[in-house]
């Protein structure tokens, strides 16, 4: 598993990765997908909807249970990973690459990202 440089993680196990000035990719950490187990269903939001930080924007269901996924930073949905709807297992296989969830235009990344952790600190918190 290659963890991309520079991602920030939330305590609820979402990551956010900067693509350019205002475009950010959001997904689930490798720890989260491993804990969920076999993922069999993903419900993603509509493009152009806006969510604030902390709002539920998606649901990921494993064989065991349904889990709500929260916005690590607020913004407007500009792209969703439609491949996941047909093939949710991609999220298990490749959470940082093929298994990203959404891309957003962040409202105020700097204000919203204050409580997010660098990956190494996130990993330390898990132990």
């Amino acid at each position: 598993m290659i963890v991309p440089e520079g991602i920030l993680c939330s305590k609820s196990h979402e990551y956010v990765k900067e693509e350019n000035e205002s475009l950010y990719t959001i997904g689930l950490t490798d720890y989260a997908v491993e804990q969920l187990g076999d993922i069999v269903f993903i419900e993603l939001p509509e493009i152009d909807t806006e969510f604030s930080k902390g709002e539920v924007f998606a649901t990921v269901e494993s064989v065991k249970a349904a889990s709500e996924i929260y916005m690590p930073v607020g913004g407007k949905i500009v792209q969703i990973n439609e491949k996941l709807v047909e093939s949710p297992e991609i999220l298990n296989e490749s959470p940082y690459d093929e298994g990203w969830l959404i891309k957003i235009e962040a409202n105020d990344f700097h204000a919203d990202s204050g409580d997010l952790l660098e990956y190494s600190d996130y990993k330390d918190e898990l132990e």
Binding site: G37, D38, V40, S62, V63, K64
Partner: peptide
């Protein structure tokens, strides 16, 4: 144990 190698 809920799972060993994965539920599926």
């Amino acid at each position: 144990p809920v799972q060993y190698t994965g539920i599926i």
